[in-house]
């Protein structure tokens, strides 16, 4: 099956400092892909670059194809059809994404007029349908309310309604629940997965929370310092992570049940993008790093069906995890 979106060799530099260093990613129709990594790893920049949402001074290279059509560097008129239409995006801070002085009806209708061939009463009816779809109680009356009259979870629901206005094939959710309380996070994630099933929409879920990604995605890509270091089906990644960084991330997560153990913290910090180490960017923090790691940047190579990892010590790391002494 031809992928819905395929990203190849996507690189981004701000003022000569590379922040994205060759990202390859493909996404099928209706698939839920999770993107995890620490702050600064390039999770958000990947999609902002793909949709042409970065400031002008960002230097972008590579290729981003939507249904086979190149959209990287496409003219604004074409991108306007893609953004909000075929690909919608929701962000962490929904309150700042809405206009505080316009009613919800105005903002929803604006999105509908832009992306759907609707006019007059049909727009209003569709706005009401969307608000009902995302579970805002008393939607008829609430359409004339302003953003501040809604709670944080409801504002995120409204953002989701706006994102759905264009009937997108792909929804990019960038940390959609990070600012919300645990029980509200559960509501929003449930809403997203219901909508995704009903509309057979693909989704990219960007999150720093491994648990959120594991529960809501089919496939997960782990990013580190502007690259993808491991890609695998969600259940396999969490049961058997191969890249030492992926192992570290999972080991750093305190368990909620069973015996308590000391957390395996990854030593050091994420490298400064302006002073990237030679070779593998993770080598300075990696317990398994050897001399060859510092020579060349490892490429993403397949290790099993549907699994790729960028680590020349992948075998050793797998053995270390199984408790067999490496070498």
């Amino acid at each position: 099956m031809a992928p819905l979106v395929s990203i190849e060799g996507l690189s981004v530099a701000f003022n000569g400092v590379p922040v994205l260093r060759g990202v390859d990613l493909a996404l099928g129709k209706g698939e839920a892909l999770g993107l995890v990594g620490e702050s600064g790893s390039g999770k958000s920049v990947t999609w902002l670059a793909a949709l042409g949402l970065l400031p002008r001074h960002a230097k972008i290279s590579g290729s981003v194809r939507l249904d086979g059509r190149e959209i990287l560097g496409a003219p604004a008129s074409e991108l306007d059809q893609v953004r909000g239409g075929r690909v919608a995006m929701i962000f962490q801070d929904p309150a700042s994404a809405l206009n505080p002085v316009l009613t919800i009806r105005k903002q929803l209708c604006e999105a509908l007029v832009l992306h759907r061939d609707l006019s007059g009463e049909a727009v209003k009816a569709e706005a009401l349908r969307l608000l009902n779809l995302v579970g805002i109680p008393d939607a008829t009356r609430r359409l004339s309310a302003y953003p501040h009259e809604f709670s944080g979870g409801q504002v995120q629901r409204i953002m989701i309604a706006m994102a759905l206005a264009g009937n997108p094939d792909l929804l990019i959710a960038d940390e959609p629940t990070t600012a919300l309380d645990a029980t509200i996070q559960a509501q929003i994630l449930e809403l997203l997965s219901t909508i995704r099933r009903e509309m057979s929409m693909a989704m990219v879920l960007i999150s720093h929370d491994l648990g959120v990604v594991a529960e809501n995605c089919d496939r997960v890509a782990v990013m580190y310092a502007g690259r993808i270091v491991e890609q695998a089906p969600a259940n396999q990644l969490f049961a058997d992570p191969v890249h030492p960084y992926a192992q570290g991330l999972i080991g750093a997560l305190p368990p909620l049940d069973g015996p308590r153990r000391r957390l395996t913290a990854i030593p050091g910090t994420v490298p400064d993008p302006a002073h990237m180490p030679d070779g593998c960017a993770f080598a300075p923090r990696c317990a398994l790093a050897a001399e060859p790691c510092r020579l060349a940047v490892p490429t993403l190579a397949p290790i099993a069906d549907d699994r790729t990892v960028a680590c020349i010590r992948a075998e050793a790391s797998r053995r270390a995890l199984l408790g067999i002494a490496a070498e």
Partner: peptide, 8 residues
């Protein structure tokens, strides 16, 4: 509280 390895 989401947990790896558990579906929702």
């Amino acid at each position: 509280s989401p947990a790896p390895g558990r579906r929702s």
